[in-house]
């Protein structure tokens, strides 16, 4: 008898705002803990969300991070109206990065963002159009490997 009940949270993320980077992800993490999601799943979601949040801050000049938690899974949707990604396959390769120099100096832009998102989520989808923006959807099943 699984009702499709869910709770949502949504955050605006400002582009270039490194000072507040990770704030949305941290709040989503706290929500998941309040809902009693197992620690290892919370960790995967926090890492994936943070990577996506950082991409919006570095590349897109701002966007939205949304989380919807169901009883059996969590979905993270990150949208921006940024420059878009011309070659998604290339962007998904480890080490490929178009991060500006200042971001790299801060330790970002190692080209692991998208590959990390793929790695830590159970389902990953990316839609991007040059000049229009990018939408990333990640799904995390609530299946804990702890004990």
């Amino acid at each position: 008898m699984s009702e499709n009940k869910s709770v949502k949270m949504e955050f605006e993320v400002a582009g270039g705002d490194f000072e507040r980077a990770g704030e949305a992800s941290a709040k989503i993490k706290r929500m998941l803990q309040r809902l009693g999601i197992a620690a290892d799943i919370v960790r995967r979601i926090a890492i994936g969300t943070y990577e996506a949040e950082m991409n919006v801050i570095i590349h897109a000049g701002g966007g939205k991070v949304a989380a919807e938690v169901f009883t059996d899974a969590t979905e993270i949707t990150v949208t921006d109206a940024g420059p878009g990604i011309p070659d998604i396959d290339k962007a998904l390769q480890e080490g490929w990065s178009t991060a500006p120099e200042y971001a790299r100096q801060m330790g970002f832009g190692a080209g692991m963002g998208l590959p990390n998102m793929v790695k830590c989520s159970d389902k990953f989808d990316i839609q991007s159009e040059v000049g229009v923006g990018t939408t990333i959807r990640m799904r995390f099943e609530h299946i804990s490997e702890d004990l």
Binding site: E3, K5, S6, V7, R30, R34, L35, G36, A39, T71
Partner: peptide, 22 residues
Amino acid sequence: VPRPMMQLDDDIMEAMKKFERM
């Protein structure tokens, strides 16, 4: 071991309801 004190309820449905009310 974890000491899960953040959790609003052991039952996720209840926790969701409490979260929305919160």
